[in-house]
Each structure stands twice: as structure tokens, then as C-alpha cells.
Design a protein around this nucleic acid. Structure first.
Lengths: 374, 374
DNA sequence: CAAATCCGCGAGAGCGCTCTCCGATCCTGG
DNA sequence: CCAGGATCGGAGAGCGCTCTCGCGGATTTG
């Protein structure tokens, strides 16, 4: 890979400030000997007057090493500025200390899934994983898996020992990624129950319970004609949220819940609400399967002259920052995303440590975050 | 890449007994011989009846290899299901094919910077980097750098060859990360001009131009008494946005611009606007240095009975998805974040390929995204 | 037709680390 | 005071890969 002038020419170059790159004078490298630049175990051993093996033992704390020698070695490590070469280590240990965080989904024409990352949801998940991984000194490698090629790249990375396992968060129901992982027998944990049952660990939120919470709240607030805006029904969570909501409403006397389908986007929520309003003018409550759609629904409601929450109450799902900032602030079912992500990391780490382990799943309880919209 | 399950040359064994629920019968692993599990170069060489070196040449396409032999080798690779062991490769090449993406900032008490990731800004930057890195087969390792410990971990990772370089996006002005990187002589590129001048490549947006755009738009819309809500002034971009705005307003006849300081959060925007309203009741236009603060400002304005945009026009900076979704939709100065992130990746890759390269900076031109709020 | 050239392949030496032996030292009990 | 056991450091063999070097055969040139 030399240079590729074919790459998108960077637009609008104004100033091109060029400073002389300073030769790092004060780099704490000392007492090396080999030609490459970085001090090696060998170098430390020489300085400390011990063997490579002993230094290794001190570094990894594997076997007891006499306190005295340990001090000498640590001293030598400090003066040489030694840091272990992870490539060499993982070559022999067959562990990389890295996991792949896969943001996966089927490719959608024209929707560069920048959207993925613009959605705070992914940020929260990734953030939660990072925090859980960090104390274990495990690095997260971020990969997008939109195309089959991407997915095979993930599998390859794992197979060739670039990473020890995968944490998958899918955007769609029929994502092939989980199945591929299982097929290859690779350690992995996914966010949300996979579309079809496969032996793979996952964490999820009790979607039906969350939907019930929403239903009960609407009922308690006096709503008598409520509708639902669902996500794509091939996604299990969307399915559960809808059916959970319908069931709960049925228990409270509303046997039929007018429903419109969306795809978790703002626009689809707007469209769904508009359609709903068309057929059912007397609605006084709406449950949307995520916040983005709920926001779209509010927009449609307001455009139709309905006030939220006075005329129609709206509840979302996710408790995203978007909903907290919008006006009226969105009442929403909160899933403890960060904790869920942390749990994923924990399960994966366990699985890596003990590959024989059976698959597990952890279901988290949602809570209702009451704000202004309902 | 069709591999028929029929052609399994030597007795294929995979780590059986690890999975329990599925018998993964069709795993594409076949034709190994060594004990570890994954086929090695050696295995491929044996199957193809050539030397290790030749297989390596085919894999890396480095030197001419007879087409005929090449075919045989590729065949062997396919039947063995060979994937190169990256650890072994990077041990000798001293390249890892990975870069660290550092989300950095000073530690703040009580604010678990989940906020970082909930802010769509980071998502967009990271997404842009991912896309630019992918075609080069470079993997991004995500790391948070909040504490000194985190930062030294980043430096260590780089120094011990865990990654080839760093892409840094800082949240604050006096972030120590850039300086540390320069000090250690490590390849790195930062997002936005560093707080103090150091020999480090960066990309940025022409903040002053963006602010000018906002000023001119407000003036064109008839605003005569405009105020500014700035970010923390130790951040160069916040400084430039403010002074750029002030200068542009001065050119248009408003020599004094009432200003309140915020820290890029919603709450600070709200507080700043409230304070501004206190002192200057006749404001008819506001420029906030980012969208979050602009949103807070609008909230304050509405709370004070001012209509947006009828009474007061508001312009933000960032063109974030938050602003697009809020009502009234936020007019904002757009910086091409994804392209900027891609350019960062490009510069870093160049720097890694040619470490002697001098530092460069690329400044992008902002544009005004006109929506409802101004 | 012989000599010079070139091209493509194989042999082999490590890259920096871990980890299994083994030998040396020390401690303990008889 | 010595045998036996426990403890701790050293030597050395690779992990899987790349890359330099050199050699043989094909091709070209005098």
C-alpha cells in the first residue's frame, strides 16, 4: 500500500501548516542493544543479570520469584523502558487480549450506516463494553459488518488469532453474523436474542415487561384508545415489545390495539403515526418500540394539531439522550444498556477463559423513565 | 469461495467437544496436521508441494510466482482453510495493521463519560474513521483515555507494537494526550487543532469561517441584537468560533456581542441563555458554539416566552442529528465530520508508511445548514 | 554454441516471547 | 549432620511468519 491518488481527494485544503517533526529526544529508552529500537526481554535480562525466563516470570507474575531478584528485574525494566511485545506473546500463548466489537446488520442501499453511529444507542453499548473490558486489559477492535465480505473478515480475524472473541450488536433481525460465529465455533456474545434460536450467549432486556410497563402507565394516565408503532417484526425484540404491549392492553380491557409498522427510524415513526391517525382519529395514547419512532410520532401528532401529552400521550423505548432533550421530553422504557454491555463483556471473557462453557443468557429488567410526553 | 465439504484431504479434526448444542459438522477447517488447530503456512506448503517461502509470496503477492504454482498454492490454501496468523506476521514485519482510536479528555468527577459516546459527534467521527480504514485492512482499536493511567496505557500499547499509530479525538482543550504522543515520537493525528502548538498532524474545520457564516446569516435575516454562547475558551475551536463570530458581527455594524460561556453541554447552554436574557432583553439572534448548547438556549428562550425563530433566531454548530430532530429544527454550521475523520485516517496511514514525513494539517470548510431555527 | 543474464524457488535464520524441563540451592526432619 | 523434598533460576525449544541469500534452469546475447 503505497499511495493511492484514486482515493477521495481531500476537499478544501486551506492552510497546510507544516512543522518540523521533532526527534523525540527524551524517550525513556535506555540500555538497549538490539537494532530494532525497542528493548526486549533479552535486554532487560542482561541489565538485570538474570535470564530471560526470570524476567518473563516477573512480568507475568506466574511463579514465585525471590523478592530481591524481583526488585532488580523491576529496576531493569524501568531503566530500559521495557514493554512486552504483544505479538510475540500472543504467538506463543495463542491469546491476543483483544476482542472484536461487531456492529452488524444487513446492507441497506443508500443508507451508509453512519446512522448506526449517529444513533446514541450504539455509542452507549460500545461505551459500556469498553468500561467492562478495560480492567481486564482487553482491547476492543471495532468492526462494521454490513456486507458478506465484512462478515467473513470478522470470522477470519477471529480464526487467524487477531482477536479472542466477538461482541455483536446487530441492527436487524436476520443478521447472518451470529450464525456464522456459531458455525465457526468462535467465542461470541450478542446483544438481544438472535432472530432464530442458535447456541449463542446473549443478553437482552425483558421486552415484554417493558411493553407492559408502558401499557400500564398509559392506562393509569387515563388513556382509553391506544395504538402501537412497532419495529420490524423479524426482529425478536420488536416482536416481543408489540405482543407484550398488546397482551397488557388486553388485560386492561383494550382487546384491539391499532398497530402500524416502522423500522426504528424517525421517518418511519412519523409515517406510521400519520397512518394511524388516518384510521383512528380518537387515539389518546401511543407506544412506539423505540425513541426515534416515538419522536417521529410526536412530530406527526403535532402536525395534525394534537397536543402531546394533553391530547395524546406518547411513550418510547430505549430512554435515549435524544428523547431526554426533545420537547416534550419523552417518557420511555429504559433498558440498562451500559450494564447489559458490561455483562456481554463478562460472559465473553468467561467463555474465552473456558471454551467448554455452555451458552448463557442474561435478561435485564427494564424500568419506566417518566418525562413529559406521557 | 465455495468449498465443497466433500474434499477433506487429510483427516480433518477441529476442536470438538467445545460446543455442546450444535454439532458443527460443516466447519470449513480441513487439512491441517499440526497440533494446535489452525493450519499454518507449513501445512499449506506441504499440501501444495512447495516451500513455505513460496506460499508466503503467494499470500502477500510480493514477488512474481509462476502462475501455475500460484494456482496450486491457492488451491491448497482453500482446501486447508488457511488464514495467516497475524501475531506471527507482525512479529517479523513490525507492523500490526491496527491503529488506536483514542477518545480522550480530562477526567471529570462524577461524569462517567458515557456522555462521550451518547454524543453523536463521537459516533460520527469513529464511523468515518472506520470507513476510511477498512479498505486498507487496518483495524481500529478503541480506547478511552480519561485518566493518566489510561493515557499511559495508550502509549504503552503503541510502544509495544500493539498498534501502529493513534487517531485522537479530544473532548477538552488541555488534553495531555497529544503531547504525550509527540513526546514518545509515535505516529498520530488529532481531531481539531491542539490546545498548544506541537508538531502533530491534525484536521480541523475553519471555525472562524463557520462563525462568520452564522453571523452573516443572522444579519441577513434581519437580526440587530445578537449574542453568543461560547464553549470553554481553553479549547481553540471554541475560541475561534467566538472571535470569528465577534469579528464578523463587527464588520456588520454590531461592535459588541454579549457573550456567555458554556461547556458544550445542554445544561450550560440553557444557563448561558438564561443569563444572557437577564442582561440583554432585546436579543433577536443567538449563535451557540455547538448544537447541544443551542438546544439548551432554545429551551431557555421558550421558557422565557420567546418564540424561535420568530422572536429570536438561533444557530448552532456541528449539524448534529440532535439538531435535525428537535423542533424547531436547528440551523447549524456543518462540519464535514466523516470526511474529516477519513482524512485523519489517511494522514495517519501515510505517516505510518513514511515515518520521516513532516506533520501536516488539513482544514475543512464549513457550510451552513439552514433549518427552522434561524 | 558457449557465456552471461535473469528469474523463480527453496533453505534457513531469526522476530520476542512463553514454558517445559533440569539443575542448583535451601530447608526440614530424622 | 545428612538424606529427601521443595523451591527457584537458567537453558533451550519452538510459536508461525517474513525475508535475505543463493542456486538451478531458462532465456538471451556475443
Amino acid at each position: 500500500m503505497a499511495d493511492d491518488p484514486a482515493d477521495a481527494p481531500p476537499p478544501a485544503r486551506l492552510g497546510a501548516g507544516t512543522l518540523e517533526a521533532t526527534p523525540p529526544s527524551g524517550t525513556p529508552v535506555a540500555g538497549r542493544a538490539s537494532g530494532t529500537g525497542a528493548p526486549t526481554l533479552e535486554d532487560v535480562a542482561r541489565v538485570a543479570g538474570v535470564s530471560r525466563a526470570t524476567v518473563s516470570r516477573v512480568v507475568n507474575g506466574q511463579r514465585r520469584v525471590a523478592a530481591e531478584i524481583q526488585a532488580v528485574v523491576r529496576e531493569a525494566i524501568a531503566t530500559t523502558g521495557y514493554v512486552p511485545n504483544l505479538a510475540a506473546r500472543s504467538l506463543v500463548t495463542r491469546r491476543t487480549g483483544a476482542v472484536i466489537v461487531v456492529v452488524s446488520g444487513a446492507e441497506e442501499q443508500g443508507s451508509p450506516s453512519t446512522i448506526d453511529f449517529a444513533d446514541p444507542f450504539f455509542g452507549r453499548v460500545v461505551g459500556g463494553m469498553l468500561r467492562a473490558l478495560r480492567p481486564h486489559d482487553v482491547d476492543p477492535i471495532l468492526m462494521l459488518a454490513e456486507t458478506d465480505f465484512d462478515r467473513s473478515r470478522v470470522i477470519s480475524s477471529l480464526r487467524n488469532g487477531n482477536a479472542d472473541g466477538a461482541l455483536v450488536v446487530s441492527t436487524r433481525g436476520e443478521d447472518p453474523m451470529p450464525a456464522l460465529l456459531v458455525e465457526a465455533g468462535l467465542p461470541a456474545v450478542v446483544f438481544a436474542r438472535p432472530g432464530r434460536p442458535i447456541p449463542l450467549s446473549f443478553v437482552d432486556v425483558a421486552n415484554r415487561d417493558g411493553a407492559r410497563l408502558a401499557a400500564e402507565h398509559l392506562v393509569a394516565r387515563g388513556c382509553r384508545h391506544v395504538a402501537a408503532i412497532s419495529g420490524p417484526l423479524d426482529v425478536p425484540s420488536a416482536q416481543d415489545r408489540l405482543s407484550g404491549f398488546q397482551d397488557a392492553m388486553a388485560r386492561h380491557g383494550q382487546a384491539f390495539v391499532p398497530t402500524a409498522g416502522g423500522n426504528f427510524t424517525y421517518e418511519s415513526g412519523l409515517a406510521a403515526m400519520t397512518a394511524l391517525l388516518d384510521g383512528y382519529g380518537d387515539l389518546d395514547g401511543v407506544f412506539a418500540s423505540n425513541d426515534l419512532m416515538a419522536l417521529g410520532a410526536i412530530e406527526a401528532l403535532q402536525a395534525a394539531g394534537r397536543r402531546v401529552p394533553e391530547d395524546v400521550r406518547v411513550i418510547g423505548f430505549d430512554d435515549s439522550s435524544l428523547g431526554a432533550l426533545s420537547r416534550p421530553a419523552l417518557t420511555s422504557v429504559r433498558q440498562p444498556i451500559e450494564e447489559m454491555a458490561a455483562e456481554m463483556a463478562r460472559i465473553l471473557l468467561d467463555t474465552i477463559a473456558d471454551p467448554g462453557r455452555r451458552v448463557t443468557s442474561t435478561i435485564f429488567e427494564p424500568t419506566l423513565r417518566i418525562r413529559a410526553s406521557a
